[in-house]
Amino acid sequence: MGQARALMGLSAQLDEELDFREGDVITIIGVPEPGWFEGELEGRRGIFPEGFVELLGPL
């Protein structure tokens, strides 16, 4: 779908969440519900709030 750069780090609180560090580039693979993305980073998949990232182009 597209890519996004992390504006800040996120520590996953639930198993389905993706954790990442500020500056990581995450591949967006879905939008499971409004306000959330599903992404992949370094072979890991999970969901995260859209406010933690900036899109690097259209989805």
Rank of each mutant, 00 (worst) to 15 (best):
M1N: 02
M1D: 02
G2C: 13
G2P: 07
Q3R: 11
Q3A: 09
Q3D: 05
Q3S: 10
Q3H: 07
Q3I: 12
A4C: 10
A4V: 08
A4I: 02
R5N: 03
R5Q: 06
R5K: 08
A6L: 04
A6D: 00
L7W: 02
L7M: 12
L7Q: 12
L7C: 09
L7G: 01
L7S: 09
M8S: 12
M8L: 10
M8G: 08
M8E: 11
G9P: 13
G9E: 12
G9S: 15
G9H: 14
L10N: 15
L10S: 15
L10A: 15
L10I: 11
L10F: 15
S11T: 12
S11N: 13
S11F: 09
A12L: 03
A12M: 07
A12K: 13
Q13W: 06
Q13M: 11
Q13S: 14
Q13V: 12
L14V: 14
L14F: 15
D15M: 09
D15S: 11
D15R: 11
E16C: 14
E16D: 13
E16P: 09
E16A: 12
E16W: 10
E16M: 12
E17H: 15
E17G: 12
E17D: 10
E17M: 14
E17W: 14
L18S: 03
L18M: 01
L18E: 01
D19Y: 11
D19C: 13
D19P: 08
D19K: 12
F20N: 01
F20M: 07
F20S: 02
F20H: 03
F20C: 04
R21C: 13
R21Q: 13
R21D: 12
E22R: 12
E22V: 12
G23N: 10
G23F: 02
G23I: 01
G23M: 00
D24S: 03
D24W: 03
D24N: 05
V25K: 09
V25H: 10
V25G: 04
V25S: 04
I26Y: 03
I26F: 01
I26G: 02
T27F: 01
T27L: 02
T27A: 09
I28S: 12
I28D: 01
I29V: 13
G30D: 13
G30V: 00
G30N: 01
G30F: 06
G30M: 03
G30P: 12
V31Y: 08
V31D: 06
V31L: 10
V31G: 05
V31I: 14
P32D: 00
E33V: 02
P34C: 09
P34K: 13
P34D: 13
P34W: 00
P34G: 03
P34N: 07
G35L: 01
G35H: 04
G35D: 02
G35E: 00
G35K: 09
G35Y: 00
W36R: 06
W36D: 01
W36V: 12
W36Y: 14
W36M: 14
F37A: 01
F37Y: 14
F37L: 13
E38Y: 13
E38W: 08
E38M: 14
G39I: 01
G39L: 03
G39A: 04
E40Y: 10
E40W: 02
E40V: 12
E40Q: 10
E40T: 14
L41W: 05
L41Y: 11
L41P: 07
E42I: 01
E42C: 11
E42V: 01
E42T: 09
E42W: 03
G43A: 05
G43S: 06
G43H: 04
G43C: 03
G43K: 04
R44Y: 01
R44T: 06
R44F: 00
R44V: 04
R44L: 01
R45M: 00
R45N: 07
R45D: 03
G46H: 06
G46W: 02
G46R: 03
G46P: 05
G46C: 06
I47H: 05
I47P: 04
I47C: 12
I47E: 05
I47M: 05
F48W: 00
F48Y: 04
F48D: 03
F48L: 11
F48P: 04
F48I: 06
P49D: 02
P49I: 04
P49C: 00
P49V: 00
P49M: 08
P49K: 11
P49T: 03
E50S: 13
E50V: 10
G51S: 15
G51W: 13
G51F: 14
G51T: 13
G51M: 14
F52H: 15
V53C: 06
V53T: 06
V53R: 01
V53I: 04
V53F: 03
L55P: 09
L55C: 07
L55G: 02
L56Y: 06
L56F: 07
L56M: 10
G57W: 06
G57H: 10
P58C: 07
P58V: 08
P58F: 07
P58M: 04
P58N: 07
P58A: 12
L59P: 09
L59G: 11
